[in-house]
């Protein structure tokens, strides 16, 4: 698969470039929106949960939100745009043939290009925030987190992009699911809250929480500055499970993509 795609290196580069540029075309702030979007969301959550509900659950709460929100935005935007990766490129798909895996991969790479500078910026801000200390040893999880997130995101994108060609319902389902999914990740609240919860229900089902790969991935990012929320607090068996799950999902969704791809040219 990868040998096939490497042949289209030039095309991939062109499409990623186009995707990044077109998204912010006709906007004044342009590329800055990659940062403004999560910043805006952060402001909303910090205001609602930090001030109105008065739940400053962790130190430097706005920054905590941002540390989780930026990786989440990467996942969220890739999936949202990835749903239309095939159905939005009808003119190309109907007229010429090249490996269609390129479309979801393009979306992933374009969002990665947006994610990296935003994350670095937040990282630098966190370095200089009083009360936060960089946990050096947690940095070893960063490459793993990035790789795992890319694999898992790609797997999901393969699946939704090809399904959306057959059933446009997928678009609506994905949007709704992403909403719920965000609240199932440690973004506006820390993981440590689950174990200490007063609710029996939450404590009883806390172990289920880490079946969600995104929860584990976001914990890996959190650990860099928030040792109490680190991935090392999660049972190792859960982490292994999530890695296996992501790999299996990738194989499965790639297989589905290959199968459904056969009729894409006529259905689209």
């Amino acid at each position: 698969m990868f040998a096939d795609i490497m042949k289209y290196k030039e095309l991939l580069y062109f499409l990623v470039h186009k995707e990044v540029r077109i998204r912010y075309r006709n906007s004044i702030f342009g590329f800055l929106w990659t940062l403004l979007e999560p910043l805006g969301l952060m402001a909303i959550y910090a205001l609602v949960f930090g001030e109105i509900l008065n739940k400053n659950l962790v130190k430097a709460y706005p920054l905590f939100i941002l540390m989780g929100l930026i990786p989440w935005t990467f996942f969220n935007n890739t999936l949202r745009r990835g749903t239309k990766a095939l159905s939005g490129n009808v003119s190309l798909i109907k007229k010429v043939y090249f490996p269609r895996e390129i479309f979801p991969i393009t979306i992933l790479l374009a969002n990665l290009v947006n994610f990296v500078p935003a994350f670095i910026l937040v990282f630098v801000i966190a370095m200089f925030t009083p009360g936060l200390h960089l946990q050096w040893y947690q940095l070893i999880y960063l490459p793993g987190a990035l790789l795992l997130q890319c694999l898992f995101t790609l797997a999901c994108t393969f699946l939704v992009s090809v399904l959306n060609v057959y059933y446009r319902d997928v678009e609506f389902i994905v949007n709704l699911m992403l909403r719920a999914w965000m609240y199932l990740c440690p973004i506006i609240y820390p993981v440590s809250l689950l174990g200490a919860s007063k609710s029996d229900l939450v404590r009883e089902f806390a172990w289920l929480y880490f079946l969600n790969p995104m929860a584990v991935i976001i914990s890996m990012y959190h650990g860099i500055f928030y040792p109490k929320e680190a991935v090392t607090k999660i049972p190792p068996s859960m982490i292994i499970f999530v890695i296996i799950l992501s790999l299996l999902l990738l194989v499965f969704s790639w297989w589905i993509f290959k199968r459904l791809n056969r009729r894409v040219g006529e259905v689209i």
Partner: peptide, 18 residues
């Protein structure tokens, strides 16, 4: 295989890359 939103020049590059 022409992409509507791209210019002629960009389309040449895109198609050659394809």
């Amino acid at each position: 295989g022409l992409s509507r939103d791209l210019t002629g020049a960009e389309n040449i590059r895109l198609n050659c890359a394809i």
